[in-house]
Amino acid sequence: MTATTGEPASVAARASDVWKVYGSGEAQVMALRGVSAEFERGRFTAIMGPSGSGKSTLMHCLAGLDTVTRGTVQVGETTVTGLGDAGLTKLRRDKVGFIFQQFNLLPTLTAKENILLPLSIAGRKPDPAWYDVVIETVGLRDRLDHRPAQLSGGQQQRVACARALVARPEVIFADEPTGNLDSRSGAEVLNFLRNSVREHGQTIVMVTHDPTAAAYADRVVFLADGQIVSELIEPTADTVLDTMKKLDTPAEVAR
């Protein structure tokens, strides 16, 4: 399996001059101030920045979970900005996968049912070969009939990853996927995400504030105060930490 999709563009998601303003008047917060960024197909990009810098907001806007105040967002060929609920639902079904920090699974369904849920909702059949590959990579074959309550936090998050992967979306957005995990389970999940990019050409955009997690990515984009301030290709934990330190202005800390 290699990253050969029929689409001509090599960009999986794109933000063009995106502004996001919350509230108004006194309480007004500018979460994003003119962010422009491209996320290439078949790459693992991390979005980093201090708390409150706008990472989640950017991800939500990219994924069509939130509307932008100004600017446009594209996922693949689709212009997300301006889509209605039906359009957004279709986008989420066909083009986008999600991995959240917590509460990721339906407690009533087994692991297998959770993994297949997006496909069954859309009324599609899984590609059996690809399903096998995903299950194999996540390493949960003997846990497929368990319910979330019977799985550890790391296992649950791996099920969530498998669920995002099995539909082969254009891009998977992950918001602090390891935020609730201990370091070993976190490493498992991150390895798994990196492998799915390297071996299967999946596109992943991951929000994190953990330099170790960011080091798993191919590229790191740094946000501060709602703006992209820096970028690293082929990062290591050390280079990320260095960049972070430079960005850590006293004003940000005070926030």
């Binding site: 639902t89 989420r92 079904r93 996968g97 339906l106």
Partner: peptide, 16 residues
């Protein structure tokens, strides 16, 4: 609420 949000996020339509 959270669960419903999740379902909607992974593609459940309003009608569904």
């Amino acid at each position: 609420t959270r669960e419903l949000g999740l379902l909607r996020a992974i593609g459940l339509r309003r009608s569904q």
